[in-house]
Design a protein around this nucleic acid. Structure first.
Length: 582
DNA sequence: GCCGTTTTCGGCCCGACTGTTTTCAGTCG
């Protein structure tokens, strides 16, 4: 995501929220949200695009282009400022509290003078809000709880946190005799980098739901039961995340899985498509649409595949369900054949106790063998990474020798490659001289410091590293840490073009704190024909399990196994690295 | 505000749960 596009997207999001809060046209709200979403996922900067190119984007009309240009020229959008002038700044934050929507936020503000979270807390405590019509003790108590939870939990959680939490619940639910099928859905199934709530789905007979909800609400992880109905329940957990469970009739599992996987925007498209074909889609079934507008005979409901097929579409992998054009591709049978976890056959970015890893060379290699990998590269940190015990020239030479010894001992089991994760210094030069890099089979070059550089410098820095003849992989190219550090904002199109030209792979660092490249960058890389490397950046034994998050991110970007160097055979990989045959 | 196999107006997806309701609005996903 480029900074300029993100800034404008934020303004459109705020226009949507303000319009909603002020009771404006809800379709206008949707339209603003849609523009924001398009901008967030846009590869090129808006100032590099023509008006015609912008208006060709689905969801972007003339009005949006005018506002975008206004921001580019003057750094502000009049409509936004006019809306914002009508509402005190803190009211939007009040609206973000779970359980408070636009109507309630407006009522609190206009009838009770709540203009901030602080006001809300004070007036909850004083009992002033209880005098408002329609607000009994339970509603207010729930708002109080939401406030406390939001403060302790903070933002959306990492993909890895959500996946682990989902597993904890499914490990209890799956073995239950009443449970016919179970799955995680929502943004977790789509592999988004951050997850709001975990959505779980279970198929069971209606008569047997009580036992399932008992097990769910009584799970060790549960701190608070938010709601419990006949078909759905929500809880807050010790992981600081909410988990929702839906129990559906086994015959409707496919329709429900489709529905609860989302995205919301993808679902809207599907339902529109159903309508165009005289059908209606909900979480129970795809059904014929009757004259009175109600759902008639069921067309399909048991599997996602059948429902997509009935809509004239190939099954769409969850990671692509973001309304980014995947439905048109599915209609033409042109969906990419996405890379899968099992396609990944090697790890090319791993650390040992020589720098800041927890495993010895041999332990690292044994773990890689256990995963069925044909190759592992030992890439410890370079000298500038003092806090990570980076290797100076003498230590690197000794370490390379040590790696070669273990490689010889384990030659029958796995190929162990010498390597380094060499720092890309602020000016784009590398942290080791070329003669040292020559010792390495694999050179991963990564930025670790000067991560607040301006985009032009960052781009030049990374381009210089890509052009270096020994570099084969650019590690975590932006250096961002999700929810913690922005990292660099390079021109990813330019990087991808250069990477393709020099036959260098851009890494998708699979660590769930990083996911760097991120999904939209992957999309750009794939479009430009650049190779990708999905690496776990292994520091400890458990890190190999991060691979699934990297693969999900690659899939979200539309990567196939032909795009990913870790999917090569041992022989092809050696050839790509310029090594003599293994 | 956006969009078009019904193109420049008139639509724009669907349902569960809660609280405070005498029949439903608000929120959420």
């Amino acid at each position: 995501m480029s900074t300029r596009n993100a800034e404008i997207a934020t303004l459109f999001e705020r226009m949507a929220e303000l319009t909603e809060l002020l009771g404006g046209n809800r379709f206008k709200v949707n339209a603003f949200e849609k523009v924001a979403r398009v901008l967030r996922e846009l590869g090129p900067e808006v100032d590099e695009m023509s008006d015609a190119e912008l208006v060709a984007l689905e969801g972007v009309g003339k009005g949006a282009v005018e506002r975008i240009r206004q921001y580019c020229d003057h750094g502000r959008i009049d409509d936004h400022d006019e809306l914002a002038a009508q509402v005190p700044g803190g009211v939007l934050e009040v609206m973000h509290v779970p359980g408070i929507g636009p109507k309630t936020a407006r009522l609190f503000w206009q009838e009770a003078g709540v203009e901030s979270i602080a006001d809300l807390k004070a007036k909850l405590a004083s009992g002033e809000l209880a005098e408002l019509k329609g607000f009994g003790p339970k509603k207010l108590a729930n708002i109080g709880k939401s406030l406390a939870f939001a403060e302790s939990a903070g933002d959306r959680r990492h993909l890895g946190t959500a996946w682990t939490l989902a597993r904890r619940f499914l490990d209890v639910l799956e073995p239950m005799p009443q449970v016919r099928q179970s799955a995680y859905a929502g943004s977790l199934r789509r592999g988004r980098e951050t997850i709001g709530d975990v959505d779980l789905l279970v198929a069971a007979d209606a008569a047997e739901t009580a036992a399932i909800f008992d097990a769910f609400c009584g799970h060790d992880a549960v701190e608070d039961v938010l709601l419990r109905g006949d078909t759905k329940s929500s809880v807050r957990t010790d992981a600081g995340m909410q988990v929702d469970l839906r129990v559906v009739d086994p015959r409707s599992f496919g329709a429900a899985l489709l529905y609860f996987t989302g995205s919301k925007e993808h679902n809207v498209r599907l339902r529109e498509r159903a309508r165009e074909r005289g059908m209606t889609l909900n979480e129970y079934a795809l059904a014929k649409l009757q004259d009175d507008g109600s759902a008639g005979a069921v067309v399909e409901r048991e599997t996602e595949e059948a429902i997509y097929a009935a809509l004239g579409l190939a099954w769409i992998p969850p990671e692509l369900r973001e309304d980014r054009g995947e439905i048109a591709l599915a209609a033409k049978g042109k969906l990419p054949d996405l890379v899968e976890l099992e396609d990944v056959r090697c790890e090319l970015h791993a650390h040992t106790t020589a720098s800041d890893g927890k495993l010895s060379i041999r332990e690292l290699a044994e773990r890689a063998v256990a995963r069925g990998f044909h190759t592992i590269a030992v890439t410890d940190h370079s000298r500038s990474q003092v806090q990570a015990n980076g290797l100076d020239a003498d230590r690197l030479r000794a370490h390379v020798e040590a790696v070669r010894e273990v490689a010889a001992e384990m030659a029958g089991e796995i190929a162990i490659l010498t390597g380094t994760e060499v720092d890309i210094l602020a000016d784009g030069s590398l942290d080791y001289d070329d003669d040292l890099l020559e010792l390495c089979d694999v050179v991963v070059a990564s930025p670790h410091a000067a991560l607040a550089q301006d985009p032009k410098k960052a781009t030049a820095r990374l381009l210089k590293a890509i052009a270096h003849p020994k570099v084969k992989i650019i590690g975590h190219p932006t250096g961002r840490l999700i929810n913690r550090r922005e990292g660099l904002h390079p021109d990813v199109e330019a990087l991808a073009e250069a990477a393709a030209e020099h036959d260098v792979a851009l890494e998708i660092n699979a660590n769930h704190w990083r996911l760097d490249l991120r999904d939209v960058h992957v999309r750009t890389a794939v479009a430009k024909g650049a190779k990708l490397a999905i690496d776990c950046d292994v520091h400890g034994a458990g890190d190999f399990d991060m691979l699934r998050y990297g693969v999900m991110t690659a899939r979200r970007g539309g990567a196939t196994k032909r795009d990913v160097v870790n999917c090569m055979t041992r022989k092809r990989l050696a050839k790509w690295l310029g090594l003599s045959a293994p």
